[in-house]
Simulated scan of single mutants.
Amino acid sequence: MDEKFIVVWTIDGETTRIPHSTQDAALHQAERLLREHGCDLDITLHLDEISEPPSIWFNKNRMQRWCLAGFPAVRI
């Protein structure tokens, strides 16, 4: 099973990276983190590998807007 989606977040200076094989699993993880830690959480979602754009699918600003909008459905 390929790990195509990587959720990366930082809390209290500690960065965590969790790979997911599906978009839904990654978004579910991101939503859970944002609900728990608030919409200002430093969180990104990468495609395939951790690097600068273009592999960043959701940057911190997009994650914040998604959170504030109530987590509407998204698709790549």
Rank of each mutant, 00 (worst) to 15 (best):
D2I: 15
D24V: 04
D40C: 06
S55P: 07
H46G: 01
D2V: 13
A30N: 03
H37F: 15
V7A: 13
G38V: 09
L47I: 09
S51H: 05
D12Q: 14
I6C: 02
A73Q: 09
L45D: 00
Q23V: 12
V74Q: 13
T10M: 14
Q29E: 10
A25T: 02
T44V: 10
V7K: 02
F58N: 13
G38H: 07
D2A: 11
T15L: 07
V74D: 05
R17Q: 14
R32D: 14
L41R: 05
R35G: 04
L34E: 00
P54M: 04
R35P: 02
D12K: 11
K4M: 08
M63R: 00
P54V: 10
D24H: 04
C67D: 06
E3F: 11
G38K: 15
R62N: 06
E31L: 07
C39I: 09
R75E: 06
D24W: 00
D2K: 09
C67H: 08
P19L: 09
F71G: 04
V7T: 14
P53N: 09
R65G: 05
I18T: 15
R35K: 12
L47C: 07
E52T: 13
V7S: 04
L41D: 03
N59K: 02
D48N: 08
R17P: 03
I11L: 12
N61S: 12
T22K: 07
G38E: 06
F71C: 03
R65Q: 10
H37L: 08
L33R: 01
I50Q: 05
I56H: 01
I11A: 07
T10V: 10
L47V: 09
C39H: 14
D48T: 06
N61I: 10
W57Q: 04
E52H: 15
L45I: 13
A30G: 07
R75M: 10
L41V: 04
R62K: 08
E31V: 15
E52Q: 08
H46W: 05
I56N: 03
I18Q: 06
G13C: 14
S55K: 15
F71P: 02
V7L: 08
N59W: 01
I18P: 00
I6E: 03
I6L: 08
P54G: 02
R17C: 08
W66V: 08
L27M: 11
I43K: 02
F5C: 06
Q23D: 15
R17V: 07
A26N: 02
S21F: 04
H37Q: 15
G70K: 08
Q64E: 13
D40Y: 14
S51M: 03
N59H: 11
K60W: 00
H37E: 14
Q29H: 14
P19V: 11
F58E: 03
V7F: 03
K60E: 08
F58R: 07
R75K: 12
L27N: 01
F71R: 03
R17S: 13
C39M: 05
T15R: 05
D12S: 11
A26Y: 00
A26W: 01
E36L: 11
W66H: 14
E49C: 12
A69V: 10
M63Y: 02
T15K: 04
I6H: 06
